[in-house]
Computed example of a mutant assay.
Amino acid sequence: MERWIELARSFIGLHEVKGREHNPEILQMWKDIKRGGIKDDETPWCAAFVGAMLERAGIKSSRFEGARSYSSWGEKLAEPADGCVVVFSRDGGGHVGFVVGQDSAGNLLVLGGNQSDAVNVKAFPRSRVTAYRWPAGVPMPIGTLPVRAPAEFSKSEA
């Protein structure tokens, strides 16, 4: 398992704090990607999560707050690979996370931040994918994308 995925898995369950307080771990993720001027956990933070996990694993992220910044980051993949970065379209913007498998119907299982205001694994249809990316210079895993137990479909990434 890739180091950034191990790190990302350790944050499953992390969520935004409702109200005037903000989760300090999410604020640290903004700092990790050199966007420390963002001082809340309501700003869409999927790219901060992906970037922080990459940075903490010693890989330079896009260092940008927009999910679509990952569309040209790293190396392009024609198909998803276990641990790759995946960029999605959504109404009003984009979304980014890590592919950690697929369900039996071929939907992608994505470990990401700001998925229903938390870090979790959700299912996404491949029809929403705009890019699969891999860190430049890092050897890719060999083999097919693993089939895992189904997950609930993502309903909110904003």
Rank of each mutant, 00 (worst) to 15 (best):
A78K: 11
V119Y: 04
R90P: 10
S61L: 03
R133S: 03
T144W: 06
W73Q: 01
R63V: 03
D82N: 13
G137L: 03
S71W: 05
R148I: 06
V85N: 03
S154C: 15
K34H: 11
A149V: 05
R148S: 10
A123C: 10
G51K: 02
D32H: 02
L27T: 11
D40M: 09
Q28V: 00
G19M: 09
L7V: 11
V129F: 09
M29P: 02
V96Q: 05
A78R: 10
W30I: 03
W4R: 03
I26R: 01
A131T: 08
W30E: 00
S116Q: 14
N114F: 07
I5S: 04
R68C: 13
E65Y: 10
P146G: 14
R90E: 12
W4Q: 00
F98S: 07
R68F: 12
S154L: 14
V96F: 04
E157F: 12
Q28G: 08
N114M: 09
V86H: 00
E6V: 12
K18C: 10
Y132N: 04
I5H: 09
R56T: 00
D117L: 09
S154F: 08
E75A: 07
K39Q: 14
E65G: 13
K76H: 11
A48D: 00
C46R: 04
V121W: 06
F11Y: 15
V121R: 04
G106H: 08
F64Y: 09
G112M: 05
S72P: 00
V110Q: 06
A52M: 02
L54Y: 01
Q102C: 12
G36H: 04
A78W: 07
G83D: 03
P139E: 08
V129R: 08
A47L: 03
A105N: 13
A48L: 03
P24Y: 04
G97V: 01
D117Y: 11
G94Q: 13
D117I: 04
P141C: 06
P141I: 00
M1S: 14
V138Y: 01
Y132G: 07
L27P: 07
E157K: 11
G97S: 10
V87D: 01
A149H: 12
K39Y: 06
L109R: 06
G106Y: 09
R90A: 07
G37Q: 10
M1E: 11
A48P: 01
R128I: 02
D82R: 13
N120E: 13
L7R: 05
G92Y: 07
R148E: 12
E25H: 06
G92T: 07
K18Q: 14
S116N: 14
E42M: 12
G37V: 01
A81V: 14
G106V: 04
E42Y: 12
H95V: 13
H22A: 15
P135E: 00
V17S: 11
L145D: 06
R126C: 09
S69E: 08
H95R: 10
V138D: 01
V85L: 03
G97C: 10
E6F: 05
H15Q: 15
R9G: 06
S10I: 04
